[in-house]
Design a protein around this nucleic acid. Sequence first.
RNA 1: GGCCUGUUGGUUCAGUUGGUUAGAACGCCGCCCUGUCACGGCGGAGGUCACGAGUUCGAGUCUCGUACAGGUCGCCA
Length: 598
Amino acid sequence: MSESMRGLKRTHRCAEVVDAPLNSEVTVMGWAQRRRNLGALIFVDLRDRSGLLQIVFDENTIGKEGFEKASTIRSEYVIAVVGKVVKRGGAVNPNLKTGELEIAAESLRILSESETPPFQIEENSQTRDELRLKYRYLDLRRPDMQRNIIMKSKVMGLVRSFMAKEGFLEIETPMLMKSTPEGARDYLVPSRIHPGSFYALPQSPQLYKQLLMCSGFDRYIQIARCFRDEDLRADRQPEFTQIDMELSFVDEEDVMDVNERLLKYIFKETIGVDVQIPFKRMPWQEAMDRFGSDKPDTRFGMELHDISDLVKDCGFSVFSSAVTKGSSVRAINVEGKGDLGRKQIDKLVEFAKGYGAKGLAYLQIKSDGTRKCSFAKFMKDEELDAIIDRMEAKPGDLILIAAGKNKMVWDVLGALRLEMGKEMGLMDPDQYNFLWVTEFPLLEWSDEENRYMAMHHPFTMPMEEDWGMIDTDPGAVRARAYDIVLNGTELGGGSIRIHQDDIQEKMFEVLGFTKERAHEQFGFLLDAFRYGVPPHAGLAYGLDRLVMHIVHADSIRDVIAFPKVKDASDLMSGAPGEVDEKQLKELSIKVDLPEKEE
RNA sequence: GGCCUGUUGGUUCAGUUGGUUAGAACGCCGCCCUGUCACGGCGGAGGUCACGAGUUCGAGUCUCGUACAGGUCGCCA
C-alpha cells in the first residue's frame, strides 16, 4: 500500500544530512537499500543519488504501529522518514560519508512498495548487460551508473560555462535536415506532406555551423545529438552527443588554444587532474610510422620501425617483394615476450590475419640467447643481426614483422602493439596523454567507389604548400585538419574550412562531383559563400567518449542513460518496432521485406 | 555480412574422461534476536541446464543449426 507524502517536505538528500545539526529534525526520502532486522531494532540503509544514510527504527521512539510498519520494509521500497540526526550508538562506518550519523526515526511513510528487483541494486554489478539494459531504470539506480550520469551532466555544465566565458554562443541547429549520402549512412525520416521525400537526422551539424559563421555569429557551440546508421562498437552508439564548435577569423593556433584550456579546465574540475598545456602535436605521417595509428596511445613505447631497407635484397620474397612504393616491411619489438610458446605465437598470427595480414613473421630471441625465427632459412645471419640491431632487441624479446601495403602493415602492427600493451599492463590508467594529430591526408582512395573521398569532409582546407600536387598526386596533399587524441582514443576532430570558391570547386572536381551534384547537395552552403564568408574553423568532440575517459568506463553504454545494443535496438522499449498500417499510409510508405530463406 | 566468446534457480558462478538425486554464494520466504552496517542463528522454497535437431545404452557436458548478448573486422566523410 502506498502512502501520500502530503504534509511532508524533504529537507535533505541522504548524504547531505552531514550538514544538519545534531539532534535537529530532518525529513529524508529514498529507496531502502538494505534492512537489518535485529528483532527489537531495525536498521535501514536509505539510498538516493547522494549516497546512503542509516535509519534506525526503535519501538520506543517510533511507537508500536510505526515499528511494525518498519518491519515490512523490503529492498527498493520508497520511504519517507522524519527523525532526529543523532550520533551512532554503535561503531561508526568509515565506508560511508554519513558513517558517524544515523536518523532516529520518529515517523515512517511507505511511499511505494517494490517487487524484488530482477538483480541486486549494488555497485560493480556483474549482472549481464542484457538484463541491465532491459531494466535500465533499475540499473541506473546503481551508484556507479549514477556517478557516470551525474559526471556527464557536470561536464556539460562545465563546457557551457567555460565556452560562454570565451564568448561562444549556444545555437541550436535542425534535427530534421537534408540527407547527404557522403559519409555515414543517414537515419531517414519520411515526410508526410511531401510523399516520397525524406528528412535525415544529422550526422553532425557541420553545414549549419558553417552557415552560422556566414551569418556572423563568430563563435558557436552546441551540445548536439548526432545520428549515424552504422554498426555499433564498445565506443560507438547510433545516437551520440557532440560538443560542436565553430569559430570565425581564426587559424589552427586559436582553435587548439581554446580547446586545450577547455580540456584542462574540465579535467581539473571533474577529477582534479592537472593536464599540461599546450598538448604535444604529431603529424599524421609520424603517428602512422611510429604507432601504426592515427590515434596513438603514447603512454607506452613498442614503436614501429621500418626495416624495408634491411630486407629489400634478402632471400625471403614476402619481404623483398614488399619493398615498393606504398608497401613496406615494418616491425615491433615486444620486450620480454621472447619465450612465448608456439601456441601463443600462433594466436598472434591469427590476430594479425584479422587485420588483413596474410601472415606474421616473428623473430624470437630466447632468454638464453638462442633465436627462433619463422623465416630463418631465407636469411643470412648478418641480416637477422641487422634487424635485431635496428629493433634494439635483447635476449628475451620478440620481434613481430608485417610486410605488405603500408595501410595494412600499420593496421596490423598498430593493433598488435595495443593488444600486447594491454596484455602486459603498459597503459597507466592514471596518465592522460593528450595529443594533437595534424596534417592528415586530405583525400583517401576508395577501392569501393573507385575515386578519392574526403578523409575529413569536403570542406576541409588543404595545406597551401601541397595544393600544387592536387592534379598530379592527390593522395599526397595534406589537410589543415587536426584530431584531439587521448590515450589512444579519438576524442574529437576538426579543421580549417575552405572559404574560397576556386579551392572548393576544385575539391568537388577531385571528389568526382559534377557542378550540378555539388550544387544539389550543398547548394545552400555554396550560395551562402557567395555573400561574404569569414575564414573559419571548428572542432567537434565525442562527449560520450570524453566522459568515458573521465569515469574510466569500458563501454560507451555506461555513460549514456538509455543506450542501444549491438543491433541498434533498445532492449527496454523494444525500439525499433513496427507501426500501424494507418501511419504508413499517411506517409505513402509500403514495406517491401526481402523474403526469408527457409 | 565475416570471425571470436558466452547462455546452468531471481543474480553471479562451479559442474571432472559423457554416468545415477545438477551444487555454492548472494537474493527471496518464515521463525528467533536491542547496535547492526556484507548483521547473526535456525528452517524453507526455487532449475524442462537458452531453443531445436543429432551422436550415444545414457548429454548440462560431444556435433550441427537457431535465437539472444558481448567483443571485433568490414563500415563509421
